[in-house]
């Protein structure tokens, strides 16, 4: 049984301009100890999926259909009390604005100890602090910096502290939403390396959410490419990056400058992402797609298997 199975998930927001279909019909599965990366541009719904998995959608958001099976249990059916135990206890999250996730007027060690004690009151204050010591060892923050306040930490150390906090309750699944966006490239590299090691060591399932293909490519076993609220291509990392099938994936890959390979002209994707309050009929990418055919704008595309485990939402691929 997979650690996490998401079936046909659709999420929308009530906004002033109308009902925004942020995520539509997304399905994926994650095995224990594996990692899955979602890549997409802003507004594609990747953050919304993370929030939905945590049960933390904003008040104007709602899940309109689908199931989220975590260890065989549908998270959408269980009580809020049970969800609270699962949240942080079994599913932890590293937020997008991780830098602001620490309380500036409390020592870092106390914040993490508090998180531990909320979930398992039995350990007591001293036990919790012992655990924090171990966690800091794991994420590589020196012992003597434990009693510092957050502002005394560098960006990289704050991020490590956040990872320590996510690890605090030994979760089965960690959702990392743009975990390194604000960091410099050298620190980012260290953090990603660290994360990969931790994941292996503790056999944690991870979901990486990022707009940056290269980060996701670095850490994930499986990749999901998202566009305008839909998953458009899904498969193993090597498959998706080395033989992309969906026109959007291809376009996205050729719009990234790299330091390897030839220095060829980037092919930007023309146009802009569609408005999700009034999403276009048929394929949502067809306006910007170089290979669009007459039927693309009318009929909704269906999933096509490219090879085992690699599928795409496109008729003509």
């Amino acid at each position: 049984m997979a650690l996490l199975e998401v079936e046909n998930l659709s999420i929308g927001y009530n906004t002033k301009g109308g009902y925004l279909k942020a995520v539509e019909g997304v399905s994926f599965a994650l095995e224990e100890g594996q990692s899955l990366g979602f890549v997409g541009e802003s507004g594609c719904g990747k953050t919304t999926i993370g929030m939905a998995l945590m049960g933390l959608l904003p008040s104007n958001g709602s899940i309109t259909q689908g199931r989220i099976l975590f260890e065989g249990e549908d998270l959408l059916e269980i009580s809020e009390k049970k969800m609270r135990q699962i949240r942080w206890g079994k599913i932890a999250m590293i937020f997008q604005a991780a830098m602001n996730a620490l309380n500036p007027v409390q020592r870092v060690v106390d914040q993490i100890a508090e998180a531990i004690m909320t979930h398992s009151p039995a350990v007591g204050k001293r036990g919790a602090i012992e655990q924090v010591k171990d966690l800091f060892q794991i994420v590589g923050i020196p012992q003597e910096r434990m009693r510092d306040y957050p502002h005394q930490y560098s960006g990289g150390m704050k991020q490590r502290a956040i990872i320590a906090m996510a690890l605090a309750c030994r979760p089965k699944l960690i959702i990392a939403d743009e975990p390194t966006t604000a960091l410099d490239v050298i620190v980012q590299d260290q953090i990603l390396e660290e994360t990969k090691n931790l994941q292996r060591e503790f056999n944690i399932g991870m979901i990486f959410i990022s707009h940056d293909i290269s980060i996701v490519a670095d850490v994930s076993h499986d990749i999901g490419i998202m566009y305008a609220g839909q998953l458009v291509e899904y498969g193993a990392r090597e498959e998706v990056f080395e033989s992309p099938v969906h026109p959007y994936t291809k376009a996205l890959l050729s719009s990234y400058p790299t330091i390897t390979g030839d220095r060829s002209l980037l092919q930007p994707i023309p146009g802009e992402t569609p408005n999700l309050i009034y999403p276009p009929d048929g394929c949502r990418f067809c306006d910007r797609c170089p290979g669009a055919k007459p039927g693309c704008g009318e009929e909704s595309p269906v999933w096509v298997d490219v090879s085992p485990g690699h599928k795409t939402l496109c008729y003509h691929c």
Binding site: V185, I186, D189, S214, A217, D218, T258, I259, T260
Partner: peptide
Amino acid sequence: ALIDAIPKFGHSGE
């Protein structure tokens, strides 16, 4: 060190 740190994908062999 900067070049080392850049995540690479695709042509990782070279």
